[in-house]
Amino acid sequence: MPEAIQHRFDPYSSNGGSILAIAGKDFAVVAGDTRQSEGYSIQSRYQKKVFPLTSKAILAVNGFAADGNNFVKRVKQRLEWYTHAHNKEMPIKSIARLIQTMLYARRMFPYYVYNVLAGIEEDDGTGAVYSFDPVGSYERETCRAAGAAQSLLQPFLDNQIYFRNHTPAPGQPPFDPSTHPLSTVLSILVDSFSSATERHIEVGDFLEGYVILSPGRTSDDLIGEGVKGVLPEGMTVEEQDPEDLDVQSAVAGKGCRVFLVRKELKRD
């Protein structure tokens, strides 16, 4: 008879990785690394944690992967029901509130997941980032980092996106975080993850995310000729067909364009 191992089943685990989202005036960027790990073992070098929900809202989940995947599945289901009931996509503001309600519903057995939701606001077309704690406390922000390397990424964003501890030259207007051009945001994104990969063992392999452009906005700074030298080195950009986004494309919001961005990170 094997000795009775009296240990309680722990229904949680932590699967590493990090996610990051930045909102611009007329765009939003959300990305994460694709490494999934448990302890010191890399389970997979390519496992998604950023998921398109609608044609203008994308959710990144980080923490316990099983909870994350199932949470995304449930959110998508609720959004589909909404679409069937109202024949339109749910606005990002409402998705954010939905997520808070769904997280808080599990207050006593939480989803061990940090959510970051990014997209385009319905009413004014501005870029939006909403971040959540595991039990649903949420806030709209300009940028947010979450996950294993949050402590490495967030202060860097404070400095580079929010201009903390920067003083404008005499006579110059105050800094405004929402005026960053897309190319700057993508550079900061890539530099953030390269830094996190360098110093955090749970971050690496690939950077994958999405850029969502507000209706009518030009994509000249993202695809086509003339983006060489503007885009970070080694980054690939692919425009997404709403059909491939696994969203309710029949009622997809008009005008928002979604781009998949990828870059290799170090594998060690």
């Binding site: 390397a149 402590s151 490495l152 860097f156 830094s195 996190a196």
Partner: peptide
Amino acid sequence: TDKLYGVAEGL
């Protein structure tokens, strides 16, 4: 320490 590494690595 963690935060210093993150920012220093970037700057």
